[in-house]
């Protein structure tokens, strides 16, 4: 996982990877929350492009961050989920809590 904060846009970008389950979510949560409380971002981007697996523990992770950010006026963006992860997000109704976005396809040079 990589965490980057952009002061200009007040945007915290968390690039998640590998597999998000109950085991890894417990570990990720502490690091993400430390960055949230350090910066109080307007937008939390969870970049899911490199995530190979996610179950309902990942949904719990997103819901928990929403509960922290929402009272602070922050929003969550879920970026580039793989098809089977987008399916879980839809199943859980995550589009009601977060914006699900897709990056423009990379230019082939």
């Amino acid at each position: 996982m990589q965490i980057r904060y952009d002061t200009e846009t007040a945007c915290l970008v968390v690039r998640l990877d590998y597999e998000i389950d109950h085991h890894s979510a417990t570990l990720l949560r502490a690091d993400i929350d430390a960055a949230i409380y350090a910066h109080l971002p307007r937008t939390l981007v969870l970049d899911l492009a490199d995530v190979a697996f996610m179950d309902s523990s990942g949904i719990g992770l997103i819901m928990g961050r929403y509960k922290i950010l929402s009272p602070l006026g922050g929003e969550i963006v879920l970026r580039d989920p793989a098809p089977h992860i987008a399916q879980i997000l839809r199943f859980a109704g995550m589009e009601r809590l977060a914006r699900i976005t897709r990056s423009a396809p990379k230019e082939v040079v």
Partner: peptide, 8 residues
């Protein structure tokens, strides 16, 4: 409190 989503 453990952030279980209740979706299992």
């Amino acid at each position: 409190q453990e952030e279980r989503a209740g979706l299992g």
